[in-house]
């Protein structure tokens, strides 16, 4: 899905999910590891931490969007 959006629209698509090997296998180019399968962008338990974790991943996504890459890249930070 990510690959086809990127190809069709010709725009960078950042993929945030938990299982990095699957993202690499299906051909996503800009990859950000999520937190857990049921809550890739959340840390349930503490409201503040939950939001902070999500914000961090969103900021990292914006960075990935503006970064030039020439192959599949995992943005770990």
């Amino acid at each position: 899905m990510v690959r086809e959006i990127e190809k069709t629209a010709g725009i960078p698509v950042v993929h945030i999910a938990t299982i990095v090997p699957i993202m690499l296998t299906v051909g996503s180019n800009r990859i950000i590891p999520g937190i857990a399968i049921p809550h890739p962008l959340g840390k349930p338990g503490n409201d503040e931490e939950d939001h902070a974790a999500r914000r961090k991943l969103c900021e990292r996504a914006l960075k990935a969007i503006t970064t030039k890459i020439d192959k599949q890249t995992v943005f770990k930070e």
Binding site: M1, V2, R3, E4, I5, E6, K7, T8, A9, G10, I11, P12, V13, V14, H15, I16, A17, T18, M23, G34, I37, P38, P40, L41, C58, A61, I65
Partner: peptide
């Protein structure tokens, strides 16, 4: 199916002048 959804969404984003996308999966 996932590929065809991707193509359809890609068409839409292109038409509406979207510059980048963030896609989340579980």
């Amino acid at each position: 199916n996932a590929e065809s959804f991707g193509r359809e969404i890609g068409e839409l984003l292109k038409k509406d002048g979207v510059d980048a996308a963030i896609l989340t999966s579980t």
